[in-house]
Design a protein around this nucleic acid. Structure first.
Lengths: 253, 253
DNA sequence: CGCAAGCTTGAATCATGTCAAAATGGGTGG
DNA sequence: CCACCCATTTTGACATGATTCAAGCTTGCG
């Protein structure tokens, strides 16, 4: 939903074009009737691009929209009482961010651009109304939220049970799957986040992330060149992760 | 919703009585019109009690219902590829379990009774239909799922960033809040799960959980007598946890 | 070109896991 | 009601993976 390739990025609602968007099948993966897609289009707003480091919304701010990432990458995080940042997720194109704000009507996290990033804004009250009229849309929303719950629980398993090697391998394969899903290479991609952010997210020290990656490279599992990653031995990587049955086709939404 | 105090536990739909249930305000905390509550009642089924160790549903099974815990406690877990159990949540009365099954139409986890437990079964397809007719019910469902996402992310922070002391303290205070919410003592309660299950859930060894609790007791933070817990120094416990701003009124749903 | 931020590497420390064994407790059958 | 047994919990000693601290290196940006 909501993701459009329209050249006119700053356009008003009138130019929304979910139909022409290569990502629309992902951000709300349903076969909506043309008419319904149009209705969706009407409520979407494309926003001006965020520059690296800019906030899309911040912790505590009133919730009113969810956002579909069109290009670029976001991270969500919250600031703990001790003042440190805790990253809770990374969001790639076609993924929805902001769903955790529905409950309390405030975003419980901040969302920041890791690079130049464009998003489609979807006012949630409109989306909710529309979902009453389009049952498949409502079902899709439930599914998206359910998947998020599922993914987060996989993340809990990772954080609670896995060692540093398994964490880093899981992280890289998770990204790989998400790139593949959008039609990009599953074996060569660019990390938009720093080592520090990876460590923060995985519950590891920066140094540990760096060491693990270096070792992976020495052992011929991956090739690392700064932020460019190539997965050389996919089978071995998957063995490390231990293809965790359910919720396997992980994608953060 | 769905939780009824009806004495006739094995009753058919006809005897459902969400209206009389002391938990109904919690399991779907909305002010539904009487008429609407009745419609909800119609789709709820009370199930026979589960004995300790019995499964409510198991990993991979087809999803068709969510369940509200009426009495007792459940745990959800999945079996990792290496064959070990990973607990992903504990569910107390008034809490909903099964939401993660919506996405793939299969439960990604198993749910097992930790003690004798009764639940209300809510067929999801009916609930979804009904939510089309009752907007506030639909909104409530979105909120519940959003809260679950929020809670799980807090859990991710706990697993990724906290040390053993903070994990155990967070766990105990989380339970405390949940008991309090249902009108029970926030300072004295009984753990329905074993030390092993706590450790599994928190990403700690059994021995560590035991040691931390013993130390907490020595330091006058809590009183431990087997499964009976009293929180003596609530302020100090909260300091340990570091009252984490948003999503603070944690309750697993 | 130069500086700051990010990344890598090494060495030392520490928290938590592992292993082993004793203590406790709950449940069952005599 | 007691005695036994098995599971759970506790405690101690030790091993180890990951963090921390410190220093050097690389990279990208002004």
């Amino acid at each position: 939903m909501a993701i459009s390739n329209s050249n006119n990025r700053f356009s008003s609602k009138l130019t929304s074009q979910c139909q022409n968007c290569s990502l629309s099948a992902l951000c709300l993966p349903i076969a909506l009737a043309d008419e319904d897609v149009n209705r969706l289009d009407q409520i979407i707003e494309r926003k001006r691009p965020l520059k690296k480091g800019e906030l899309l919304f911040h912790q505590g701010e009133e919730f009113d929209s969810v956002f579909a990432v069109r290009t670029g990458t976001l991270k969500t995080f919250n600031i703990t009482n001790s003042g440190e940042e805790q990253i809770t997720g990374f969001y790639c194109p076609s993924e929805l961010v902001g769903l955790s704000g529905i409950d309390e009507n405030h975003y419980p996290v901040s969302a920041k651009a890791l690079e130049t990033t464009t998003v489609c804004e979807i006012p949630f009250s409109h989306l909710e109304q529309l979902s009453s009229q389009i049952p498949s849309l409502k079902h899709q929303l439930f599914r998206l939220m359910s998947r998020k719950i599922c993914d987060d629980q996989q993340m809990m398993v990772l954080l609670g049970k896995k060692n540093a090697d398994e964490k880093v391998a899981s992280f890289l394969l998770n990204l790989s799957h998400r790139f593949k899903k959008r039609g990009y290479s599953a074996t060569a991609f660019r990390l938009s986040m720093s080592r520090g952010e990876i460590g923060n997210y995985l519950g590891l020290a920066v140094e540990t992330v760096s060491r693990v990656m270096t070792r992976f490279q020495k052992n011929g599992l991956i090739d690392v060149d700064g932020k460019e990653i190539s997965i050389i031995d996919m089978a071995e990587m998957e063995k490390l992760v231990g293809a965790s049955s359910e919720c396997a086709n992980i994608e953060h939404v």
